[in-house]
Design a protein around this nucleic acid. Structure first.
Length: 581
DNA sequence: CCCAAAGGCCAC
DNA sequence: AAACGTGGCCTTTGGG
């Protein structure tokens, strides 16, 4: 096993792959000297608890009726306060009342991170489960989750405990940064839901009518799909075929003499037959109709806004998930409906080749960082002579990040490994750790979690001398599968940390650009892993675009210090989302 | 009637 | 192009 050398020292497996023993100095952030106030539901209203510097409640808790909360919070906020709370449970109501806050510590999200971190936290190891381990409040459930948490341990007490275990840990700087970024992300998520993504229902209707025909009642096939179904049935000689049924469809394809294993478009595309073209068109349009058609529009768009419900930290790697509306899978087909308000513009920015760049920083691979300096990273890899063209560089890198063994991607990985041993070695090491069942960590210490009991049982069964071939094969397959997960985890998870830092810095910069309420200033309206949309008054587009770039550079410095890895953005200022590349 | 798995496809 | 990571959500299908 090749050690991963970094500024701080050599990696130790107990700390997770890619994590240095001594925290790099640039993670040693100074604690903000801002008074903290814990806020949580209490009886019919809320309880506000001022916290001393050491996190202890100072004994002057205040009870505030729900109706009076926004005004009280706004008053304290004006004086400068860090809120200690469950953002998803409390902040939406404040935003609805027009109150935006600058800083928060999300006790529930912090609990989840500290539960799973690869940084040793002895004092947290045997903590019994309580309400803070429960998932975020579903908006439909009101304050139920918050009440549950409050019944166990107060936000003030849990916050104090979190501060103490972090301070006593070997990597307080990294963990503080991670918790700050996660908490700021929670603020940004609530703010984006409140502001909503500008969505023109009339434009969406126009797109649907152009592709599907006139609107039809739900449960009915639009005209364009009816026509395609007729062609498909005719071409297959199957007058009653339902093309939405994979079972019926594969049977009909075989009856027509086509050798198919599945009905996947990628498989069908390789075949020559009159049914293929109408069938592929049908699949594409049927997907649009069912996933983002009129029903979706009626359900998810109101008052010219689509309001996704983001689930911060909803993915094991630290990426966000969403609940309802499929907000992270908006097909390119309908992005023409995302249109800035009159007099406003959209700044669309995405981080170019984010994951390989993050890997370069994580592994402190100077060759890979150099390949991406001031240019497209994949072009830079081609320039080293490692591979023939950009496409090979891209699929080879993605193959390395995903654990490809077959196909073009898999074949290219060894060439990249020879050229960039540091970077490729790190993901390889993460994969080996995962195959053994070890926990790996991101740069800031988010942990990948232990494999399930079933996984361990399968490995144990395979180690038995009498184990059958099938049992051994199954265990190896599960082992490699988990290795692919941990391989990807270290990179995807650290990329998510970069994106959180970007978002956190950006929301503050945007706020400072304007005046008035959140929706009157340049503000975030959408976030998609490595991409943001900012809605901004036209006269501030240049400042907003600059803020997006400066925030990206700041995120790079925050995570990687002076290690020379670039995080360039593709930035477009447009009226319509579909006009950005 | 509800529910979960399977097949499929959308995003990164 | 393929099938190699993270997800959500749609329809079909088959079970209770």
């Amino acid at each position: 096993m090749r050690g991963h050398r970094a500024a701080g020292g050599v990696v130790a497996s107990a700390y997770g792959v890619g994590v240095t023993l001594t925290a790099p100095a640039h993670h040693a952030t100074a604690a903000a000297v801002v008074p903290a106030v814990a806020l949580e539901a209490h009886d019919d209203g809320y309880r506000l608890t001022p916290l001393a510097d050491d996190g202890a409640a100072d004994g002057t808790a205040e009870r505030v009726p729900a109706a009076a909360l926004p005004e009280r919070v706004a008053g304290l906020e004006a004086a400068g306060v860090r809120w200690v709370w469950d953002t998803a449970a409390v902040y939406p109501a404040l935003l609805a009342a027009g109150v935006r806050v600058e800083r928060a510590h999300d006790v529930r999200l912090a609990r989840a991170i500290l539960r799973g971190t690869t940084v040793p936290l002895p004092a947290y190891a045997n903590l019994p489960r309580d309400g803070w381990d429960e998932p975020s409040a579903d908006p439909a459930d009101g304050l139920f989750a918050l009440d549950r948490a409050a019944a166990d341990v107060s936000a003030a007490d849990e916050h104090r405990r979190q501060q103490q275990v972090v301070a006593a840990s070997p990597r307080p700087g990294a963990l503080r940064l991670l918790l700050r970024a996660e908490s700021a992300g929670a603020l940004a998520a609530a703010e984006m839901s409140a502001a909503g993504l500008p969505w023109r229902a009339d434009e969406h209707e126009r797109i649907l009518a152009g592709l599907l025909g006139p609107r039809v009642p739900s449960g009915q096939r639009p005209e364009a799909l009816e026509v395609l179904v007729a062609h498909i049935r005719e071409a297959l000689g199957a007058p009653r075929l339902n093309p939405d049924s994979p079972v019926e469809l594969v049977r009909a394809l075989r009856a027509a003499g086509l050798t198919v294993e599945t009905t996947r478009s990628s498989e069908l595309r390789r075949l020559e037959h009159p049914v293929i073209e109408p069938l592929l068109s049908y699949k594409k349009l049927s997907r649009l109709h069912t996933a983002n058609g009129w029903h979706w529009l009626d359900t998810w768009v109101a008052d010219g806004r689509f309001r996704p419900d983001y689930v911060v930290g909803g993915v094991a790697t630290g990426r966000w998930a969403t609940r309802g509306g499929g907000a992270l899978q908006l097909p390119k087909q309908v992005r023409g409906a995302v249109v800035a308000d009159p007099g406003w513009r959209l700044v669309v920015a995405d981080a170019a080749q984010l994951e390989p760049r993050v890997l370069a920083g994580l592994a402190r691979d100077r060759s890979m960082a150099e390949a991406g300096r001031g240019r497209d990273l994949y072009d830079g890899i081609v320039a080293t002579g490692a591979v023939a063209d950009r496409s090979a560089a891209k699929y080879g890198m993605l193959g390395a990040l995903y654990g490809a063994t077959q196909g073009a991607g898999g074949r290219l990985v060894p060439r990249l490994a020879a050229r960039f041993p540091q970077a490729l070695g790190l993901v390889e090491q993460a994969a080996r750790a995962g195959e053994r069942g070890a926990v790996v960590g991101t740069l800031l210490g988010r942990g990948s979690g232990s494999p399930s009991d079933a996984w361990r049982a399968a490995q144990a069964a395979a180690s038995d001398l009498d184990a059958s071939d099938a049992v051994v094969r199954r265990a190896r397959s599960l082992s490699r599968e988990h290795g692919r997960f941990t391989r990807n985890f270290v990179v995807q998870g650290t990329a998510a940390e970069w994106a959180l830092c970007w978002l956190a810095d950006l929301r503050r910069r945007l706020w400072a650009l304007g005046a008035g309420r959140l929706a009157e200033r340049p503000h975030l309206v959408y976030f998609l892993h490595d991409e943001v949309l900012v809605h901004t008054p036209e006269h501030l587009v240049d400042e907003a675009a600059e803020a997006v770039r400066e925030a990206a550079a700041a995120a790079g410095r925050l995570l990687f210090g002076d290690f020379p890895v670039d995080f360039p953005l593709d930035v477009a200022v447009v009226e319509r989302y579909s006009d950005a590349t």
